[in-house]
Design a protein around this nucleic acid. Structure first.
Length: 383
DNA sequence: TCTGGGGTCCTAGGACCC
DNA sequence: TCTGGGGTCCTAGGACCC
């Protein structure tokens, strides 16, 4: 039996939330950015887009293109809370809601059609309820699979609703540039172009054996994408796999070679990573340090450890160790600290360390930090 | 003062083991 | 009197996504 999949994509999510809460922003070009100095646009409203303002654009460039652009510093917790309320609306229609990102979801409504009249009816109801409850618009694609539903939600934006029927798929894909498909980025599109594949129609007709020879494991997937085929299931929130890595990074206010300052940043990042790991119950055994220099050259160095850990103190020690093992030829622009090889269970090797007591202390620290900010309590030995 | 921050997946070479 | 070979772990780097 054919599936019916919905993809919901909030329109200019971050800036729409800001406009909803601040009438002064409405009807004017406005955008959300990270910090107000060395940052990029994370969300631009539809009034700003005719000026060429796009997500990912450096704010210096955005200001040049549109001097009257109003910039708003992002308030991430507000977006997360709004997002959670929207997802709970979606769950009224099916338990099969996949969280694709903070502002995107897939719904498998195949079985919900027994309760609701049609997919069109469900899509309209979702748009209505999201508007009524949050005063936000979204765009929805309805299709036989996730690939096409995602494509559909992008066809008409903002406030769009596009249904892609199975019979129309070949016609829609025939002249569609491959880069419009989720998963085909600039590099892949460029490589495909070099073998004369420009459209999905051409991709679907290309001999699959050649694609496999040229692209390896993704060759077969590319072939299917060209034909609009996608069997991947909608994975609801409660069946999601555990995280594979947890990291935090920060671009400094200004480039620096000052080791004391850089150490403090590493401590701050380590504490943030540690805090999240404990909150979500993870232990990790690989520390990853990311560095970006003033010339934007970026790389990371990792170290696999023989034990599981999640305390900020330990993560910090290892990230400093990695940092000090590298000669730094240029001032540092960005630092990142991450943990991977994550596990959720307890580790026997720690039984001798009275881990439980230590854990209790760390959790108490978390509660204080949550209330008063990350820097209230930390390890005195580091100062 | 051009270029944020948080992820996932894949590849490829070297070490190491049987 | 060269050069096996498979499997896994570790590390670095790149593509892609929002």
């Amino acid at each position: 039996m054919d599936r019916v999949i919905l993809h919901i994509d909030m329109d200019a999510f971050f800036i729409s939330v800001e406009q909803r809460d601040n009438p002064a922003l409405r009807g004017k070009p406005a955008a959300v950015c990270g910090s107000l100095s060395r940052s990029v646009i994370t969300s631009a409203n539809y009034e700003a887009r005719p000026f060429g303002i796009r997500a990912g654009m450096p704010i210096q460039e955005a200001k040049r293109k549109c001097p009257q652009l109003i910039l708003v510093r992002g308030n991430h917790s507000k977006y997360t809370e709004t997002s959670a309320r929207i997802f709970s609306i979606l769950k009224e229609f099916t338990p099969l809601v996949e969280v694709a990102s903070i502002d995107e979801a897939y719904l498998d409504i195949t079985d919900s059609l027994l309760l609701f009249r049609s997919s069109l009816h469900i899509a309209k109801l979702i748009k209505k309820r999201v508007w009524e409850k949050e005063k936000l618009t979204c765009s929805i694609g309805v299709a036989p699979n996730k690939l096409l539903a995602k494509l559909g939600s992008r066809i008409k934006k903002p406030d769009g609703l596009t249904i892609i029927e199975k019979e129309k798929v070949p016609e829609i894909l025939e002249d569609l540039p491959v880069s419009k498909l989720h998963g085909i980025g600039p590099k892949l599109a460029e490589t495909l172009k070099s073998i004369n594949i420009f459209t999905c129609g051409q991709l679907g007709r290309f001999p699959v054996s050649f694609l496999i020879k040229r692209f390896g494991v993704i060759g077969e997937r590319l072939h299917e994408m060209g034909l609009g085929l996608d069997e991947s299931p909608v994975i609801p929130f409660d069946q999601e796999e555990d995280a594979k890595s947890i990291s935090h990074s920060i671009t400094l206010e200004e480039d620096t070679s000052d080791l004391d300052r850089l150490r403090k940043v590493l401590l701050h990042l380590s504490e943030r990573v540690s805090k999240r790991m404990r909150k979500e119950g993870y232990y990790g055994s690989r520390v990853v340090l990311t560095i970006r220099y003033s010339d934007f050259y970026t790389f990371s160095k990792q170290k696999t450890l023989s034990r599981w850990m999640n305390s900020g103190n330990e993560i910090f020690r290892h990230s400093v160790e990695i940092f000090e093992s590298i000669p730094h030829p240029k001032p540092v622009r960005l630092l990142g600290v991450g943990m991977s090889l994550l596990k959720k269970e307890w580790c026997q090797q720690d039984l001798f360390e009275n881990r439980e007591k230590k854990d209790h202390l760390l959790k108490a620290m978390d509660r204080v930090n949550e209330k008063f900010g990350d820097w209230t309590l930390t390890w005195a030995e580091l100062y």
